[in-house]
Amino acid sequence: MPKIAADGRHLTVLNLFSTDAPEKQEKLLAAMREIVDSAAYEGWISSTVHAGQDKPGTANFIQWRSTEDLEARYAGEEFKHRTLPLFGEITTSIRLLQNEIAFTQQKSGPGGATEISPDRDDYTVIELFGVEESGQEDLLDALGASQTYLLDVPGYRTHTVLRGLRARGLDGKFVVVYSQWDSKQAYDAFRAQPESERVPERRKVDSRVRSLQTWQDENTYRVVHTRSSEE
């Protein structure tokens, strides 16, 4: 199964597709499975497909050897004349995000590798934060190394912070947080906790994040399919 590690070995691409109806999400998932199962692109390492939970949409967490390999895929006739037009018909937005892993943390502590697979039962949250270029590193720290308090939160499993490098369908600098939880109930309880009941470390971090972000968006997911070049 694919693993996320902050070792700088791979380019991490997160393709986020939103749509406006569950049946369109199913069409997206079917199209993505077909593409993933036939993938044989130079430099492609793995793809892991996620189905939207709170809002219709999909996410594809992809590992590439390099930016050059990815751009060769984008320049191909299949991508330009079949893949993009197909997705354009059934989506309301397409965001193709190129990133590098800046931080990982698991329940056991920071620095390990995070597994993503449909064989696991993770309730996955993907949060996207806009930020001024001058504040990106501070936001990476606020969302990553400063959040060790999460290790004591019931239902928390892992989170990974990604440094946004460049994107299609999104302007400006950004940061992504990919987190895994025991369940929707655990995550919702964490988000709904009154500020007065939050530990001081969380209140401090929340205030810092609010001061740095220019906008924020999120959705929740279940992993439904994965394949790697080794298979």
Rank of each mutant, 00 (worst) to 15 (best):
M1D: 14
M1E: 15
M1A: 13
P2Q: 02
P2F: 00
K3P: 07
A6M: 00
G8H: 01
R9P: 00
T12L: 06
N15I: 11
S18I: 13
T19I: 05
T19M: 06
D20R: 00
D20G: 04
P22H: 06
P22S: 07
E23P: 06
K24S: 15
E26H: 00
K27I: 11
A30F: 08
A30R: 03
I35A: 13
V36C: 03
Y41I: 14
G43V: 15
I45T: 04
S47R: 00
V49Q: 01
H50F: 13
H50C: 13
G52T: 04
Q53T: 10
P56R: 12
S66A: 03
R73W: 02
Y74K: 06
A75I: 10
G76M: 14
H81K: 06
H81W: 00
R82L: 02
L84S: 09
G88P: 00
I90R: 11
L97P: 09
N99G: 11
E100P: 12
I101Q: 03
F103L: 01
F103R: 02
Q105G: 09
K107C: 06
K107E: 04
S108G: 12
T114L: 08
E115Q: 12
E115A: 11
S117I: 09
P118V: 01
R120L: 01
Y123F: 04
V125A: 11
I126N: 05
V131P: 00
E133I: 11
S134W: 13
Q136N: 11
Q136I: 15
E137A: 10
D138Q: 12
L139T: 05
A142N: 10
G144C: 01
G144L: 03
Y149T: 05
L150I: 09
L151W: 03
Y156I: 05
Y156H: 09
H159F: 13
V161F: 09
V161D: 07
R163S: 09
R166P: 03
R166L: 05
A167R: 07
R168S: 07
R168D: 01
G169V: 01
G172Q: 11
G172V: 15
V175F: 02
Y178T: 02
W181I: 05
S183K: 08
Q185N: 11
A186Q: 08
Y187G: 10
D188K: 14
A192D: 15
S196C: 09
R202N: 03
K204G: 08
D206S: 15
R208E: 04
Q213M: 13
T226K: 12
R227C: 08
E231K: 15
